[in-house]
Design a protein around this nucleic acid. Structure first.
Lengths: 223, 223
DNA sequence: GATGTTGCCTGACAAATGTCAGGGAGCGGC
DNA sequence: GCCGCTCCCTGACATTTGTCAGGCAACATC
């Protein structure tokens, strides 16, 4: 009962499972299950991970697991709600809303620092698990992504002084969001680079992109 | 027999399967199989695609398929060899070797145009299928990626006049290679943007990043 | 100590999956 | 008309998978 200790606004509808009464126990077991599942999903992928794997690693019995989650897809949903849809980490557009005229590079640096620190796994999961989501869930995820892109595009238009119909705002916005996944997805290639250098280099790159956008006229087709 | 019509230097060792003699037939059937498998892998993911799915879509019998490929992983290998390891599309470092002093933005534009035109699916596959590769295959893929990053980093050092020990060369190089996957991975978000605009915006962004790298001193830690 | 209640687990089921053995169809050559 | 060869496919195998039914242990309550 009383308020389900959700980390942040859950956007994916979690199945109702009521085999077990004790709410605290349910929460604890779900933590075990999600933690184990997360590790396995990132190691082997969603489809290659079996319920038996998850049970083995989490220590929950193969039968009992169905007292806490409805099925494998439900685990994925719950993971995304915890890791990807958490609202305690403001998005980049939200940060831009809050600090309307702070220098972009600084804002981005702060954003990436927090993001890569606390949502690393959520980023990886959200990129890799898409094909395995139920349709409704995938739609929710895509809508959130689209909304974020549009919000960011509006800010870019303002900051770089672009025309309302300049499509580059959307492209660059999409691109920046993509770059947001850079460190989690590619840090195996920069293992020996100081993470602060990595962070600042990416932030500066993003600032350079936006700067270039402001300086250049819309791209014309070549002769 | 005589030279196996490989599109480019195959880097992943394909299993030897010799149920059927007629080399032309084998090649044709493999084409059917690979084409169907590619579609399915991109739609549903590798692990969620069954051999039966592939057979159904390609029209090859469930038993006969083992006369042409060794197993599901072998199909993936063959696909990556065709799509990702093909050598008829020069890499970005190779292009930089060839045109040592052409403007970067133009080079990148040409590169992306060809890449996104002919290796789209290879890019998607190589990003999504990694967890399902056999260890040797994954190692080969990672080594290629690392080599490419280092080659590109060397060029960046030269072009942007960076010190030999400036780690930002590797970071930016890694980042550019990552951006190379941008359109294939994210174009569902820019569906209504002209693809030429998208291309040029990304190329210009990459140029802006490198330009910023040249202009700025190495990032110092803040006070 | 008897009795409910709550959570856990042994054991199993049907379905799906990767893989193939072995027979058969088609066809060219004698 | 028969033989031998090449390729195809019906049918099946062992295994793995997701999912549970139904019984058991622990514990609190009376």
């Amino acid at each position: 009962m009383a308020g389900e200790r959700k980390g942040g606004g859950a956007e994916l509808a979690e199945a109702v499972v009521d085999g077990v009464q004790d709410a605290g126990l349910v929460a604890a077991r779900r933590d075990q299950i999600c933690q184990a599942a997360l590790e396995l999903f990132l190691e082997k992928g969603f489809a290659a991970t079996t319920i038996r794997d998850i049970c083995a690693r989490s220590g929950v019995n193969q039968a009992s697991i169905y007292d806490y989650v409805a099925n494998k897809n439900d685990i994925l949903r719950r993971l995304l709600n915890r890791l990807w849809f958490r609202t305690d980490v403001p998005t980049l557009p939200e940060r831009l809303d809050a600090c309307a005229d702070a220098p972009l590079e600084e804002l981005v640096t702060g954003y990436l620092r927090e993001l890569w620190d606390s949502k690393r796994q959520g980023i990886l999961l959200s990129y890799r698990a898409v094909p395995h989501l139920r349709d409704e869930d995938r739609r929710a995820l895509h809508e959130r992504e689209k909304r974020m892109m549009e919000d960011l595009a509006a800010h870019l238009r303002h900051r770089a002084g672009l025309a309302a119909d300049d499509p580059r705002a959307e492209v660059v916005s999409n691109l920046i969001i993509f770059l947001t996944a850079f460190a989690p997805m590619r840090d195996w290639l920069n293992k020996d680079v100081d993470s602060e250098v990595l962070l600042r280099t990416v932030a500066r790159s993003i600032a350079a992109i936006v700067g270039g956008l402001a300086a250049d006229p819309p791209t014309a087709a070549p002769a």
